[in-house]
Write a protein that binds this DNA or RNA. Structure first.
Lengths: 148, 148
DNA sequence: TTCGATGCAAAGATTTTGCATTTCC
DNA sequence: GGAAATGCAAAATCTTTGCATCGAA
């Protein structure tokens, strides 16, 4: 996980200018333990910047992704972003369908998997979806209506 | 896996009309052991139907998905469809980055995973990406350029 | 014959790009 | 001061919807 300062430092070291907007973006991701949609990010940022445009948000998300600060993931309901997990040991995630928060999973199925020698593995994906403590308690039977 | 006749029968039993276009779609999926993009499907269908429109392809894909014949999956480069795996025991897939073909993986990591009791599991995803025998042999060093 | 399926056109939604203006360093 | 970042507008994708016509049952 990165702190605001670390993210800002990475951007500055690449020659990027540190605008207010980018600082706010960095703070948002540093404070968020999960996935955010571009729309949610735009709406959050819009609170602080009246003339904010969607394309600037996208541009900054792309820049931060290229720097390796953020990672982009496709879900059934669209693209989401979160802080990149680099710097940590290899792991996977349990993801809350309600709020998007994530919990690390240290177990990796690739250690157990018997791969046919004909298949040349490049990468893998292992994700567990469900409801976190807060959301599971709050929603009860409504839980199954989540749509991440 | 379904045969063309099984797919057609499922559609007919739901009151859907069996048009030539739908028969061709059924045959395409019955013959394809992997994922197809809407665009690839449209282009394939276009060979047989000159006035084909994209919206009809989409409509039929949605219908077949609702009937449980197809399943839709989001990849980094967009939505893809394949025959639904129902009727088989629970399994996962190894997916070729080049051609989209899939191989079944009977191992399920959820059997090994120690889930925190606070987290209420709904579903999971385990996918292995790489190159199948044919594509791995063909592409060699170029392999890493795939983009599924 | 009748209602569902199709093609066409247009609308939505999401993401990207060109360009003038503003702002950081 | 000069280059990068932003906002605005418009374009490019991808997907869906309304409606008149066509066609399967």
């Amino acid at each position: 996980m990165h702190t605001v300062d670390e993210i800002v430092e990475i951007m500055a070291s690449q020659g990027l200018r540190i605008t207010d907007q980018r600082k706010t973006l960095a703070r948002l991701f540093a404070d968020t333990a999960g996935y955010l949609t571009p729309k949610a990010i735009y709406e959050y940022m819009g609170k602080s910047y009246s003339g904010l445009s969607f394309d600037t948000v996208y541009r900054n998300l792309r820049v931060m992704e290229e720097l390796g600060v953020l990672e982009q993931v496709m879900f059934e309901d669209g693209v989401k972003f979160k802080l990149h997990c680099k710097g940590h040991d290899h792991h996977h995630h349990m993801i809350c369908l309600q709020c998007g928060h994530t919990l690390p999973v240290t177990f990796c199925p690739m250690n157990e998997l018997d791969v046919p020698e004909k298949f040349q593995v490049v990468k893998h994906k292992f994700e567990v979806f469900g409801y976190c403590e807060q959301c599971g308690a709050q929603t009860g039977d409504e839980a199954s209506k989540g749509k991440l």
